[in-house]
Nucleic acid binder design. Structure first.
Lengths: 253, 253
DNA sequence: CGATGCGTTGAAGAAAATCAAGTGAGGTGG
DNA sequence: CCACCTCACTTGATTTTCTTCAACGCATCG
């Protein structure tokens, strides 16, 4: 996202505790629990969801490798959202206390953290607009294009194809639709050749058309170099994502 | 939200440029425009909205006195949302460059800024859940209870009553409903005695019942005092809100 | 005093939800 | 190794919620 000093990079590397494996369906943290930290996602898929009184579940964000988990609740005593593993994966906990070091010792990293959070906020604004004002068809197209873009940034796509481990019910929970309606909509897109499926693998057959169907623009992060506090520790190479992407092997070790 | 040192407070006071008046319907900043700053809201109501290709408008957040405007777009080159004054009001611009000073000079304020942003993110998560999974009735109840709570924090309620300058069309744009349906839903709540209206003033006639109807919990900010970076400039009094609430007269001067 | 904006209400229509039933793949245990 | 079970997907029929279209009342304001 932006260049970092060598010491900044060391700071980021030191944030996470040792990586932990999670299994599909496992709850990482339930809403209402006391907040005691955040997590880095190293590998796998995780849903951030909220449970409503009538029993419905809304998935508020689908997390992939490289994301930070659970940070929205860091200003609350009790977590607002539940984190559930959608697939097997690896995560690393970051105690809240360690984030403090960023503000005192690595102001540039702290500023970048703020930026990353603002980008998440924009993503949520997009979600509100999509769910509030668009048809199931548009919403699904947007969802797939967005996922494809995010996955490609961390090297998890094969051309126009990618692995999509969500069940149709989970897709519905993310898009504010029922599983039945998700199914009908998917099948319609498939019938028209816009997408294709084989097992869990989904292929965007006509990306330009899907993008035209999708009601929201792709957002590109952008930072004014002058604006940010200077890095610490001298110049170093760029980092591809907010959090180091997919360092699975290293984390396992 | 949290205690600040005297110098921290001075830093916050110095953020905004001189206050500017805005008139109802005035566009403060249109989506797509180059991002050159954020704003503090001193007085009035402002909507943050997004325009969709088919022409629909989704209001993503209704801002009141004490809020920061336009910050989600600070990590983008071009603004994601449009800021429109819903009433006459006063705002103060904050050049992005000045926020930099926070990270270098006032780490505690910077950390609190991050917290405030995370709280906004939780509010958006709540909005996603409400729009995605609840009925018009529940959504409206939640909207009114939430507004009442926020307004009461900055002293803009009179008991269970408050001024609600949004048109029903704007309420619909915020809740993902049509104006017609908002009207029917309002009238139903009114018929049942849950709310009452006189002009722009709305009264929550049965707050407990509305809260029971509302699908989302009230969130209370919470910061671990140990966690935050220490304040600068010695102890000082508490501040009621993230940004100094309703300093209307001072700002006008 | 006639626009114009906002609220209100009725009637008809559409999108999505609900209810129901059946298929098939994969995993497990007998 | 096969029977069975569960989970996910699929499809049809029906119902509900919300939208769309239309018309009208009322207040405000230039």
């Amino acid at each position: 996202m932006a260049s970092l000093g060598a010491r900044d990079i060391a700071t980021i590397r030191g944030l996470g505790e040792t990586a932990v494996a999670v299994r599909r369906h496992e709850t990482i943290r339930r809403e209402g629990q006391l907040v005691d930290g955040v997590w880095l996602m190293l590998h796998g898929w995780v849903a951030s969801s909220m449970l409503l009184p009538a029993g419905q579940r809304q998935i508020v964000k689908v997390h992939i490798a490289g994301d930070m988990l659970g940070t929205p609740s860091m200003a609350l005593e009790r977590a607002a959202d539940t984190l559930t593993a959608l697939t097997d994966g690896w995560i690393a906990r970051v105690p809240l206390a360690r984030l403090r070091a960023l503000f005192d010792d690595a102001p540039r990293v702290a500023a970048l953290l703020l930026m990353a959070v603002q980008l998440e906020r924009v993503a949520l604004m997009d979600a509100v607009a999509a769910i509030g004002k668009t048809s199931a068809r548009e919403r699904l197209a947007n969802f797939l294009v967005d996922l494809h873009q995010r996955l490609s940034q961390v090297g998890l796509t094969q051309g126009a194809s990618f692995d999509m481990p969500l069940t149709q019910e989970q897709i519905g929970d993310a898009l504010g639709l029922t599983a039945v309606h998700v199914n009908r909509t998917i099948r319609a897109l498939e019938r028209e050749g816009l997408i294709a499926r084989r097992g869990q693998t989904i292929t965007l057959g006509d990306l330009p058309m899907l993008e035209r169907l999708s009601p929201l623009p792709r957002r590109t992060p952008w930072f004014d170099p002058d604006w940010l506090p200077a890095g610490i520790g001298g110049p170093a190479s760029d980092d591809g994502a907010a959090v180091e992407p997919a360092p699975t092997r290293a984390a396992r070790a």
